[in-house]
Design a protein around this nucleic acid. Structure first.
Lengths: 347, 347
DNA sequence: CCTACAGTCGTAAACGTTTACGGAGTGCGT
DNA sequence: ACGCACTCCGTAAACGTTTACGACTGTAGG
């Protein structure tokens, strides 16, 4: 089966009518439409995407750009696959397909994005891992490519994004720990330029000051957000002269390494040191003692991203009237055993 | 910047010449080519992929199909991101782009594949998670779409694939454990139809028989290949009347749950029960005691897949003369502490 | 009987490329 | 002066769709 022309010849109908029948246009006889659909099914005809895209200037494909930097590969922990399901649940309603565009680690993400967009293989883009200043956002805005970002950025004043509620998490974590009697609370921050670090630490600082606890920069541990980073964070914590009684992890995977290093020194998490993590990943779920951490439904997040994207595309806007604005995505604390003690009582 | 026509007008050159200049065709003046390339760079022109694909019937895009079933989402553990890097390292040489095609969990993988292929958004396919009988393989063969599979299958007698050396791993693990004095060795098998389970168990059985140890089907634990599955596997092991002294895990992530359940019953992995895993994932790296497991370089695997695919595409075949055949991918044992004891000596 | 109109369908142009073909110009040998 | 080879470039067709436009029916209303 080659193209629509062969299908039309096989039916003794003009190619225009066949196209209209397949695309559900109104001016075609019911009986004709039935025959066309049946023949298409039988011969396994599917429209050639190149021809269609060329004609109508759209591809019905949405791209999800993911960066395959070494750090992402080690840490992503199915984050993207999880989000993908949610996205697809929304896109399926409009016969849109989702493809993932993995940016090679040796290529500049901005250049990669430009290349993909210029080639017109997608109609719209979802970008993640936004940086504090991120040229991709300016580019997409200027080029008028519909997009939505997973993560805030300072690059443009007004663009569609969803971001996790880092500030809420840091705030909640600090309040919770203080309520449990902690006064000396450490926190980890990413070493990269990702935007989340600033918000996270700022909120932590404000929460402390609200309780008249002085901010101590030696308690902000800058390590990679990975298992190894967690190991190193624990190492640095143990070196502090006045050891903190609690630590907040910006990425819960770090808990795995952190636990390990602590136990090597005979420090028991959940008894000698309270630990709270952020953004639960499947692999941290089995820690012992179980980790208190802030969870997120990747599926729901993906669906929200999808709706917001479509709300920003003229053709689909009408279907998603309320989904235009930005979202700070709330997280829910799953209390575990890793911080279940009061300072001075058990420690 | 719209298309090649605008670029041509801007240069006062015919559109044919511009195209030839950009595509490195021989019959174009050096100076003209230089001007064209400069103008293209300046105006940010990139060829519209739809037009190009339509004309030449190829897209310069390779698709990597991944199934986002629940099990995959929980377990994949960046397996695909790792492989992706290797693939891209090969594809970059030919200006091929890789996209990932996530099959929605509610769609039949075979239908999804057909749809993607019919739409002609990719020139070739990499499929994974091959089943014992897998209609995708017949389809791709018949449709003459170049492809390569990650995983063997019985579906077609001759198609390009790479598969992990399950048999070698099971064999090696059994031999190693027997050398350490073990006689009663349990093994886990997947509950799904994936092909690997059969090979794994078969090889395990043969290795045992080689040492005159009777195959005991109660030692083959069928659970999901996940952390939860590991937990359950341990549970079942503990219920056996004559408890095994060693267990081989088909998926090392299971070790996390397994360890947990064992410790709950006071059974110490690496002292009371030897554990060997398969296909190391980053998240198992931090187990305590460290897990003995068979490693694999995802990058190298991806690169091999890429070469094999190109060797099966007429245009690129010449570049990869030796990469046509199938590969059984060897794995290397990384000895850890989880099986480092002799039966009867320490236990 | 004429007009209007709704329901169908065919025709052809257009989308942005690539490429086969042929033409214009130049240089060279006879 | 002529033919020939070579270099460079323009022309136009083709890829597979979608869709604006108009043509052709049949029917209803006047």
């Amino acid at each position: 089966m080659k193209g629509i022309r062969q299908l039309a010849e096989h039916l003794n109908i003009s190619i225009g009518t066949v196209s209209r029948a397949l695309n559900g246009k109104p001016d075609v006889n019911q009986e004709t439409r039935r025959r066309v659909l049946a023949a298409a099914e039988e011969l396994g005809y599917v429209a050639n995407q190149s021809g269609r895209s060329l004609r109508q200037g759209e591809t019905k494909v949405i791209g999800l750009m993911i960066e395959s930097s070494k750090e992402t590969v080690e840490n992503a922990d199915n984050f993207f696959l999880g989000v993908t399901s949610g996205l697809q649940s929304v896109f399926a309603r409009h016969k849109l397909d989702l493809i993932m565009l993995p940016c090679p680690s040796d290529e500049d993400p901005h250049e990669y994005l430009k290349r993909m967009v210029a080639r017109r293989i997608v109609d719209a883009m979802i970008i993640s891992d936004t940086q504090r200043v991120d040229r991709r956002i300016d580019f997409l805005s200027r080029a008028k490519i519909p997009f939505v970002a997973l993560g805030r950025s300072l690059s443009a004043s007004n663009f569609p994004w969803i971001d996790l509620d880092f500030e809420g998490v840091a705030d909640h974590a600090v309040e919770r720990l203080i309520a449990l009697g902690h006064r000396r609370i450490a926190i980890t921050a990413p070493s990269s330029e990702a935007n989340l670090g600033y918000l996270f630490i700022d909120s932590y600082r404000r929460a402390l000051e609200r309780h008249d606890i002085a901010f101590d920069s030696s308690l902000v541990i800058r390590v990679r957000s990975s298992e190894e980073g967690g190991y190193q964070a624990a190492h640095e914590l143990l070196l502090l002269e006045e050891r903190p009684t609690a630590v907040i992890l910006i990425y819960e995977l770090m808990a795995i390494g952190l636990y390990r290093r602590l136990m090597e020194s005979g420090v028991m998490p959940g008894r000698d040191l309270a630990v709270i993590g952020f953004r639960d990943a499947p692999r941290a779920r089995f820690l012992q003692p179980s980790l208190s951490c802030f969870r997120i439904s990747l599926y729901d997040l993906g669906a929200a991203l999808g709706r917001m994207l479509l709300a920003n595309m003229p053709i689909y806007r009408e279907f998603y009237p309320g989904d235009g604005g930005n979202i700070i995505w709330p997280l829910e604390l799953m209390a575990g055993e890793s911080d279940a003690f009061r300072v001075g009582v058990m420690a």
